[in-house]
Design a binder for these strands. Structure first.
Lengths: 227, 227
DNA sequence: CCGCAAAGGTGTACGCTGTACGCCTTTGCG
DNA sequence: CGCAAAGGCGTACAGCGTACACCTTTGCGG
């Protein structure tokens, strides 16, 4: 019987659960985010969380999406290079602010809408900057983990953007509306390589050679760091 | 009372434990490697494992070291570029053969002797190819995760090569004997930046700009993949 | 050959995890 | 006002890593 003036405990909702999980992970690391510990912080019994979160994987996924969705928007000015660079630094800042992010992202199996949205935005910068869809595909792989906070190849399991129900045509239509650039890349890639959309060995060697070439140029130029 | 002819169970040793853990992880993934499941495969009680392995972290670490120590030696011929390239492909092959390796490596906090040995070998290729110690440092960071199967920055906790007892001078001597190149890099870096040996922000932007420059060259050249 | 210390294997037990299931309480809407 | 839906609770279970005490086997010095 809570007194009239007493602050009757607010009901839980998904956002409150995720926000508290974020705070807990920031403070004590991802391992400290157990259903019991999180419930205790919300002054609730552990099983209450399951009314707002399907299971622990969904909780972690929600945390990741919350961070990605909160990425700052870069200024819509400058060259593709400046804009991609800024997006990379924004992603890096998120990783500095949330050290658990790397581990959380790598524990996921499917691309969420938030992840696809970020990928689509970066792909859009390249394409608007004059990159072909094909080249955009490969440079996105090359950026990979280092720049995203997540590596495209960590998501071989496919996408997860809502309804898993039939009608592939409708799904495709929805995808090209919400994520036009990544959809274009996927279509282009599967046209070139019908067996599967990505040839991982090719991507690996593509990036490796890009880097080795760049190293050779620096070596030949007598590059050094402290000026 | 085992009969004379019956194959009296062989005693456990660390190598047998690690080998069985490898097999289990290859077959069913890293999550399937629990102390209990591993013990069952070895027809032994779970606690018996602790006579050969300090704890689970030590077990996983031992598995990683076993794989890295088994990296094939590249042919000692060709340019630095060919040799580094081959080492990268060897590391990638290990990851294809052991899909759990990425997760296992990223759960570690300290560099083992096996990891340091691999890093030292790659650093040695650059230095022998005419790279300065300084430049070698930065290109090693740039290769990072993508090419190693592990990212240097995943090991901010320092090294773990045996005795943690005093006498830093003796430790330094031992390090430069066993891992001359990484030691040279660490000394060079701390001379340039006394506060800490790596400026992560610098390394991040270094690699990012290397990649962005490379992308721009490909774009300007009208690069495309299928020839 | 004996004996004894060291090394190896066993059994039990504890605290922690995620979560299935059933019950009760609160909420919001027709 | 009444009732279905949503939210929160309590109990319970299987699995985890591992501390601790105990017994058994091994190998070596006398």
């Amino acid at each position: 019987m809570p007194e009239p003036g007493s602050p009757q405990r607010r009901r839980l909702d998904r956002d409150r659960v995720l926000a508290e999980a974020l705070a807990l992970a920031d403070a004590d690391g991802l391992d400290a985010v157990s259903m019991r510990a999180l419930a205790a912080r919300l002054e609730v019994v552990p099983m209450a969380l399951y009314k707002h979160v399907a299971d622990k994987e969904d909780l972690i996924g929600g945390m990741v999406d919350a961070v990605i969705a909160g990425y700052a928007r870069p200024a819509a000015t400058g060259t593709w290079r400046e804009r991609v660079r800024e997006r990379a630094l924004i992603a890096r800042a998120a990783h500095l602010a949330h050290p658990w992010l790397r581990e959380a992202i790598q524990s996921r199996r499917r691309r969420s809408a938030a992840v696809l949205g970020h990928m689509d935005a970066v792909a859009g910068e390249f394409i608007a900057g004059g990159f072909s869809v094909d080249l955009t595909h490969h440079v996105m792989h090359a950026l990979g983990n280092r720049v995203w906070g997540f590596s495209p190849e960590a998501f071989d399991g496919g996408d997860d953007v809502g309804q898993p129900d039939g009608d592939p045509a409708a799904l495709l239509r929805m995808m090209s509306e919400r994520f036009p650039h990544v959809t274009a890349i996927a279509l282009d890639a599967s046209a070139r390589n019908p067996s599967g959309s990505c040839d991982e060995q090719f991507e690996f060697e593509f990036t490796l050679d890009l880097l080795l070439d760049a190293f050779e140029r620096l070596r030949a130029a007598g590059w050094e760091s402290s000026g």
